[in-house]
Design a protein around this nucleic acid. Structure first.
Lengths: 199, 199
DNA sequence: CGGGATGCTAAACGAACGTTCAGCTCTCGG
DNA sequence: CCGAGAGCTGAACGTTCGTTTAGCATCCCG
């Protein structure tokens, strides 16, 4: 009914669950804790979502919906970075979902890889991306690198950020990352040669 | 006593816990499940480790010890990659520990970043690593990229591996990664410029 | 006005949890 | 021979878990 304001108890429960699931994991979160955070009874949680796993699925769908907020059901991986950089709870939830391999996380990862593969292919055709022998592996690796500061955000922030806002540190990491992807890290191909000779 | 063969019940319990913790998370694993996997009673688990959290700490210490198997208490991040590539349970355990920020995982990450920073500085002095304005951020980003296929191993393996042994896929990802770090990904600096102009 | 959804709660259920405890069976030094 | 200690177990403790049930308001539609 009043889905616009998104302040229904159902939405409050789902948001509270997202934070808890991200912070403590699904198994480490009790239905009662979520209910308390949302200021409702534990019974209402199950009334709305059927079961704890139903609540988890609803969180998955909601996150997927947030990420797909862009063009017509497809993941926009540029807006994604911004979305996740500021939203620590969402970031943690997604990191756990990726690790556990929840269906929604798998879908999201696959879609982003696919979009990246097409984007890189387009760049390769237009000349601003270097050619490769293994486009799929490159896209997967690129996306996993894109997600690395996301999943390891606690560690990156701890070593880079200190007490500063997270924005600073993610920008700092993004800059050096982009630099490595543009100019390279190694000045010669000694490691690449060494690797090729070993395998 | 017979610590050499490492087949005591205590070691069996610890190994079983490592697998379970990695697969289901600490909160999602019961002491009874670990005990069943190790073919002992639940009471023995607590007899040896005091509590469930004591068991978790023992796992942390054991993993840290395994990783530090190299030169005199310091992490060898080359051997680490091999160690983790083949050992899926250990990989999953470490991924969760990094995400949760357990003390052992924090220590390990910090040590690896520090070793990497010195290694890159040495390379920079010798000319086989390109210079940077932000050595710490580069080291952190490099290590997080190194760990990305580790933490996101389920996703990478799913898209790249199929049913093949994990060895293949990790080699495949490592090759394109090394290629990107040597030759770069982007042929010109349009993205780097775009990023610099925005921030 | 009246009755069936809808939103929500308190209380209780059985199961599973981490942990404790008394006691068993070996082994080994005196 | 025997008593102490280490390794180990079955049974039980109290707690918390996910879930169910019965019932209370509130609101909308006839």
């Amino acid at each position: 009914m009043r889905s616009a304001d998104d302040l229904t108890a159902r939405a409050r429960i789902r948001d509270a669950a997202l934070v808890r699931f991200g912070a403590d994991g699904v198994a480490g979160t009790s239905v009662r804790a979520v209910a308390a955070d949302a200021d409702v009874s534990a019974a209402l949680v199950l009334h709305h979502f059927g079961s704890k796993d139903g609540l988890r699925q609803a969180c998955d769908d909601h996150v997927l919906g947030l990420i797909r907020s862009g063009s017509a059901g497809e993941v926009e991986h540029e807006a994604l970075a911004e979305l996740l950089a500021e939203a620590t709870p969402l970031r943690r939830y997604l990191a756990r979902a990726l690790l556990d391999g929840s269906p929604a996380a798998n879908t999201m990862f696959s879609e982003i890889v696919d979009a990246t593969r097409r984007w890189l292919a387009e760049g390769e055709a237009q000349g601003w991306v270097k050619p490769t022998e293994d486009p799929l592996a490159r896209a997967v690796t690129y996306v996993s690198w894109l997600f690395a500061p996301l999943v390891l955000g606690e560690q990156v922030g701890r070593l880079l950020g200190g007490d500063v806002a997270e924005m600073r540190t993610s920008v700092r990491a993004a800059r050096v990352g982009l630099d490595m992807l543009t100019n390279g890290l190694f000045a010669d191909d000694r490691w690449l040669k060494a690797f090729s000779s070993v395998t």
